[in-house]
Amino acid sequence: MRLEKCWFCSSTVYPGHGIQFVRNDAKIFRFCRSKCHKNFKMKRNPRKVKWTKAYRCLHGKDMTQDSTFEFERKRNRPERYDRNVTEQTLKAISLITKIRHERQKKHITERQKQGKTKQRERDAKELEQDIQMLPKKVTLSTQKTKVVVKVSQQQTEENLMEE
């Protein structure tokens, strides 16, 4: 089972899906769905269309450099079949995929941190400017009062006896 990549959006094309367009210079364009095929026919550049993988990688939205991508690289040299190697490979695939997803998640979180900081700054500025709009009674810094309760040794012994 060969899994191809869509020419336009770079998503995985599973067997039985999509359209294969062959140009007269024998270059093959595979599309995962009609959406990608129509965009190609409209001569749209995938680097400029925001939902494609090409755009996301180009604008730093997705990870571009990672050691996990090396495993996914296409190799045209055939390997001699070995059952043990195949078994280990299949185990490794799931593990590497898991690692890549975790790193991707981390990358996105790191990327969004800057935006959150900026948003916080904006909120603080807005609050500073429009502080007079709040009613007088509302206090911004709510102080938590700590209540200390003293328990004598005698009381604890009585509780234990009851139990």
Binding site: V13, P15, G16, H17, G18, I19, Q20, F21, V22, R23, N24
Partner: peptide
Amino acid sequence: RAAMKRGRNDGSEIQFD
């Protein structure tokens, strides 16, 4: 070569220029 889509055995479709 035909510009009309043609289904293949693997379920995909092929189309020429």
